[in-house]
């Protein structure tokens, strides 16, 4: 048995470069955007702003009003601005953690860990992009619109919601030069059959090189089917319960198709963005 010489702590090797960081940041604002969602803007250091669209953070939600969230909560990056030092999240209040988030006021501090996971890709041959999303998924896909604009790609955003007032990020998508189509449950235009007609129509008229979507298994199945039929690739951002968010605990696995076999992958590490064709609804 070798005797190991004690290493002096606090002297990281020169080569060491953290990829993400745990930092306490100041809340700049945290306001409702509609009856279900809130927008949180944080003043963040450069160390956590080397983000890409589709990545996420793990937020240490405050203990408040009888709620005692313990594990961090994963949230997609809704917006990031390295020059201005700002980081944004768009979230829906659903339980203990997000209720705690909603209690934060300007000037409060929040501990965040990130950026985490693999974001969306946008290879050169993907010129005409179509994103289809619903609910919180729109938060995840929002930063893609900026990236598409920056890279000079055309973008059609189909925003699905229960009712027109709940359709989020429409302005943001328009400001990025995207064509926005709002579909709703109220008028039936968000039903899979209606969406299929809408999407097929776009493919026939303008062509679509790639899809981006999020969360919903209904949308995933629809896009897998349309994608397979027309040979259109795409990516989906997925969700799963998490503990560590870094890849250590294996809490967040989902099943994926790899050729003839089904394999587990970690949503926090290999994902949260995966090829649409490999995801299992």
């Amino acid at each position: 048995m070798s005797m190991v010489t004690p290493l002096g702590h606090g002297s990281p090797r020169d080569s060491f470069l953290p990829r993400c960081a745990e930092v306490s940041v100041r809340v700049e604002r945290n306001d409702p955007v509609n009856e279900e969602y809130r927008l949180m803007v944080l003043r963040a250091p450069d160390a956590v702003l080397n983000c890409s669209p589709g990545q996420f953070f793990q937020l240490l939600c405050p203990v408040a009003g009888g709620d005692t969230p313990f594990l961090r909560r994963p949230m997609s990056i809704y917006g990031y601005d390295r020059a201005a030092g700002l980081l944004q999240f768009l979230y829906k209040v659903t339980g203990a953690g997000t209720r705690g988030l909603a209690t934060l006021r300007e000037g409060d501090m929040l501990n965040v860990l990130g950026p985490l996971g693999q974001g969306f890709s946008m290879p050169n041959e993907w010129r005409r992009l179509m994103l289809v999303a619903r609910g919180v998924g729109l938060a995840t896909l929002a930063p893609l619109a900026k990236e598409a604009q920056r890279l000079g790609r055309s973008l059609t955003a189909i925003c699905s919601a229960r009712s027109p007032e709940l359709a989020m990020s429409v302005e943001l998508f328009r400001d990025c030069g995207a064509e926005v189509i709002v579909v709703t449950d109220t008028d039936g235009s968000s039903a899979p059959e209606a969406l299929r007609i809408l999407i097929e129509d776009r493919i026939a008229r303008d062509g679509v090189d790639a899809f981006y979507t999020c969360g919903s298994s209904r949308l995933l199945r629809l896009l897998q089917d349309i994608g397979a039929r027309h040979g259109i690739p795409g990516e989906i951002a997925m969700e799963q319960q998490m503990a560590c968010g870094l890849g250590m605990c294996q809490a967040c696995v989902r099943s994926f198709r790899e050729g003839d076999t089904i394999r587990h992958r970690r949503v926090c590490r290999e994902g949260p963005v995966f090829p649409i064709a490999e995801a299992l609804a």
Binding site: F70, M242, V253
Partner: peptide, 16 residues
């Protein structure tokens, strides 16, 4: 390994 969900939050810890 086991089926998901594989973790849950507790007031003062977690269960896996």
């Amino acid at each position: 390994g086991n089926p998901t969900p594989r973790v849950c939050d507790l007031a003062s810890g977690m269960m896996n």
